[in-house]
Design a protein around this nucleic acid. Structure first.
Lengths: 341, 341
DNA sequence: TGTCATAATGTTACCGGTAACATATTGAGG
DNA sequence: CCTCAATATGTTACCGGTAACATTATGACA
């Protein structure tokens, strides 16, 4: 039943030549006689021969594969922000003739598999995303001398790997300034629990703008998920705080905020304006559609991947912490009032 | 700079024993003297030794890894439906001590990588999801005798691999009957372009209910994405067709439909009721929240994985095409009118 | 104390490729 | 027709583990 996979030896034997010639026909065809090359090619085809990757890698070949570490959240195996980054990176890696492989940063088994792969040279480097690094993981990367770059967070704490991120501070300046511009006087900020540079930076931008405009700040902390947004607005409503603008840490949170506001007397954007951060594809699909600060995930990850390839190649990259500029994207949730037909 | 990874030989040499004893200490500790075992364990720890996976696999060990093939769509690297399946499968595989690895069915490189992995015994089997199989892929699976099961589609066309899916026909009966029950008289069906058994089955259920109730059917075909839902309603509006209920092929499409309806005079659920299919996590978060037919992705994928492990173990599974029952989930889009505070 | 089953360890060969070096073949130019 | 460089092919060793078989150490019991 099981078709045994042919080996290079069988191919060689069938042709009455040495397996080295076959190997060369595959990897350095120019070093093989034209006639032999043809015969080899044909019989490899016939027998559906494929060299075993493991044998190749064991013999010292590069695997040309990059691993991505991503931490799922409650609703997404690959949260939209990372998804965009992966798309960008994959597209770029394809041009460099690299494959990509995604690992689940929340699963012990997956983490272990990754370390095994690296250890076996099945993976040449890693891209770890904002939120996906914990101590175990980064320690493993370090101990195994695995080239790695981080995307989405401004620094990687105690681990000195290069980081590529949006400029969160100026991004939040843009967002909150926009809210002020469209007339908000009581702006609330919903951000995440815990300690992340991005939480900190975006809060800082928020505080800055509010101070400059003599407005009273109010920060709510929930999970960075749709549910977190729902919960955030819920807390606001219950606390009786009056507000006419919400700056959410992420589009997911903003989505939750919109969702919760929908079932109240407060209309968006008439009574409350909501703005998010990231510009994930779904931001277009919320009701009303979501204004946000756009991170250029594609560009960021493209850059990150380029850097990673350089490190793998042995070069030290110059810039260790790179910040990309952001764009304000205005949609219905802060300005345009949808026209009802 | 580069810390060379220690090999089993180095460990053995350092202890003055044969590497076989070290290998045994790792894989069959009970066959090694207590004292030796301790010494080996300690020095492995000290030197941070990890056996190379490739060497192991080449020597014939199982890799205990399952590959998942998933076809991204425009908005999601892993569409929500598959995401839920992956979660369910991964949880279950974890118990069986298997790792999971996700491959992108739309990327040639990723497909090639998968085939290489299988060919090298780095992967023991595959779960291919509805929509992810194309000819190239399934041919590769077949040619390499890779155990595979399909999840989400009622049959895999010309390829005879076991399939696990929802019972699409009875599921759609439930959905459309519900629309009738809540008073809809002009029910439209938005489904996908092309030829998939699930398209067909759900359409059939739709026709069945409409015929039984003497209603006029109307089928619109667009992409199975949020955008497709938007486009579908757009077409309806432009064509001047009157409708008071929409049965969408998937929750994503239904989401798009809701989105498009939001900016019209037609209110959901007062004027138009909308129902989807799948019950992805996001269905709770649309505005209004989405009624749908729930597929039990967790159970389905758990079952699929069990079957796959059996096939890998050499057993032929009895049931080749298994259908799981569905549940109607009623939310705001078909019944409850949200209370405005 | 000698014997023999059992536990502990060692030896050999192999998994399937590739690099480095060695040898054989070809053919152009004298 | 011979020589020598270039081209084509072959040989050997190694990557880092594991299974199967071989050998040696241990110790319970007669």
């Amino acid at each position: 039943m099981k078709a045994n996979k042919p080996t290079i030896d069988e191919i060689a034997r069938k042709l009455g030549i040495s397996k080295m010639t076959v190997s060369r026909a595959i990897n350095h065809p120019e070093k093989v006689g034209k006639k032999t090359l043809e015969r080899v090619t044909q019989i490899m085809d016939e027998m559906d021969y494929k060299p075993k990757l493991v044998a190749r890698v064991m013999a010292g070949s590069e695997s040309k594969t990059i691993g991505f570490f991503i931490k799922p959240n409650k609703d997404f195996i690959i949260p939209p922000f990372y998804g965009e980054c992966v798309k960008g990176a994959t597209d770029w890696l394809k041009m460099l003739d690299y494959s990509t492989l995604i690992f689940n940063a929340s699963e012990e088994r997956s983490k272990k598999l990754f370390v095994d792969y690296v250890n076996s040279n099945l993976i040449d480097g890693a891209v770890v995303f904002e939120g996906s690094y914990d101590e175990t993981l980064l320690k493993a990367l370090k101990n195994n001398n695995i080239p790695a770059v981080s995307v989405g967070e401004e620094n990687a704490g105690e681990f000195d790997i290069p980081t590529i991120s949006a400029d969160n501070y100026t991004g939040s300046l843009r967002a909150v300034t926009h809210l002020v511009d469209v007339g908000c006087k009581k702006i609330v900020h919903i951000t995440g629990k815990g300690e992340k540079p991005s939480y900190d930076m975006r809060s800082r931008g928020y505080m800055e703008v509010l101070n400059k405009n003599g407005l009273e700040p109010k920060i709510i902390r929930t999970e960075n998920t749709v549910e977190g947004g729902i919960e955030g607005v819920d807390l606001l409503l219950k606390s009786g705080v009056v507000f006419d603008g919400i700056f959410c840490f992420s589009d997911l949170v903003a989505w939750g905020a919109l969702k919760r506001l929908y079932n109240t007397a407060l209309k968006v954007p008439e009574d409350v304006k909501v703005i998010g951060f990231d510009n994930i594809p779904l931001a277009e699909y919320t009701t009303p559609s979501l204004s946000t600060v756009s991170q250029n995930m594609r560009e960021m990850s493209k850059f990150a991947v380029g850097m990673l390839i350089q490190i793998i190649g042995g070069k030290k990259p110059e810039k260790e912490h790179l910040k990309f500029d952001t764009d304000l994207v205005i949609r219905e949730s802060t300005e345009k009032v949808p026209e009802r037909e």
